[in-house]
């Protein structure tokens, strides 16, 4: 049995919940696993991870790693993989892991799979399932090599239960001067919203092109989301029109969600959008067109004008609570 190195992702000083789903993947794969946290001031994050049955919780803590710059982080991942003799390297799929892991894979002379949603034994080896063609087909793929690198879809693997035994902590020595210096962090536009993150929300409310402008979008979609404690999402059309910020785009080329409840108002359901919402348990479409693809894919559809239906739904749900 081999060893998996799991790259954890941080949200400030905390570990993102999606990263724990990657631990669920490692458990299914078998063998033991090492959790790697890269950054600066990592005590809180590392401590939160000791109950997940890892061989080691490994930290690479240095001021030079305060921001997730791919060239530096990829080098640290490579050093951690070598130090821990991992033959599989994995992380939950996100813009963070998709920036870093392919680069680390190339440095390790390894091929890689993106967005793995399943695994199965075949002819004595483990092969992997992943969506292709905008989610319209699921491929079964073999990945060869002494080192294999993957990102996995968080929603496809459960967060494991915590174990009573505590994993030991380890530190990976970081030589700041030996890190690549070709990239400099300049700034980040801090997200100010207090709403849940799209990738982790149980309920998501999204709006599309007919929402007109940012204020209307916020009033209707934001208003409905808030009575449900939901995350807000949107389509490419709404983002391009400036109604919603870029990180709210759901779909093949944006965020993939797997909410219990997804409510889509004024969204046609293009192949690209559908690719990001197929795994939601219950889908509600509010659309004036009964022929819209999202109406066909939805669990429940309300055919009508969203400018009427959305405020009405918001009010009805307010009364409920």
């Amino acid at each position: 049995m081999g060893r998996t190195l799991i790259l954890m992702e941080l949200d400030g000083r905390r570990v993102k919940r999606s990263s724990l789903h990657a631990v669920g993947f490692a458990r299914r794969l078998g063998g033991d696993y090492v959790l790697l946290v890269i950054g600066h001031h990592l005590a809180e994050a590392a401590t939160s991870l000791v109950g997940y049955g890892a061989e080691t919780v490994l930290t690479a803590d240095d001021p030079a790693l305060a921001e997730p710059l791919a060239d530096r982080y990829a080098q640290v991942v490579v050093e951690a993989a070598r130090a821990s003799r991992a033959d599989v390297i994995v992380a939950a799929a996100s813009t963070f892991s998709k920036d870093i892991l392919p680069r680390a894979a190339a440095l390790l002379d390894a091929a890689m799979l993106t967005d793995v949603v399943g695994l199965e034994p075949r002819d004595g080896q483990t092969v992997f399932n992943r969506p292709i063609n905008a989610g319209s087909r699921i491929a079964t793929v073999a990945l060869e090599g002494p080192v294999r690198v993957l990102t996995v879809r968080a929603s496809a693997f459960p967060v494991p239960d915590q174990a009573p035994a505590e994993s030991p902590m380890g530190r990976l020595a970081v030589e700041a001067d030996a890190l690549p210096a070709g990239t400099r962090f300049v700034s980040r536009q801090q997200r100010t919203s207090t709403r849940p993150d799209l990738g982790e929300a149980r309920v998501v409310v999204a709006g599309g092109r007919p929402l007109k402008d940012a204020a209307t979008f916020e009033k209707l979609i934001g208003g409905l989301a808030d009575v449900l404690g939901a995350a807000v999402g949107s389509t490419r059309a709404a983002v391009d029109a400036g109604m919603a910020s870029n990180d709210l785009q759901i779909g093949q080329t944006g965020r993939v969600i797997a909410a219990d409840l997804y409510i889509a108002a004024g969204i046609s359901g293009s192949i690209q959008h559908l690719a990001g919402v197929k795994d939601c348990r219950v889908i509600v479409a509010i659309n004036k067109d009964p022929e819209a693809p999202l109406v066909k894919a939805a669990t429940y559809s309300l055919i009508g004008d969203l400018f009427q239906a959305v405020p009405e739904l918001t009010e009805a749900l307010k009364k409920r609570t």
């Binding site: 087909r137 079964t140 793929v141 060869e144 197929k278 894919a297 669990t299 559809s301 009805a316 409920r320």
Partner: peptide, 30 residues
């Protein structure tokens, strides 16, 4: 190449949905 495509399959299809007549019915169903 170090990856090999072994098979492709259709993803699980979503069950066909129901149209609800009103917001109240939608809330009730949910």
């Amino acid at each position: 190449p170090r990856t090999a495509l072994l098979a492709v399959a259709a993803p699980p299809q979503r069950a066909g949905g129901a149209v609800v007549a009103s917001v109240d019915e939608l809330v009730l169903k949910l």
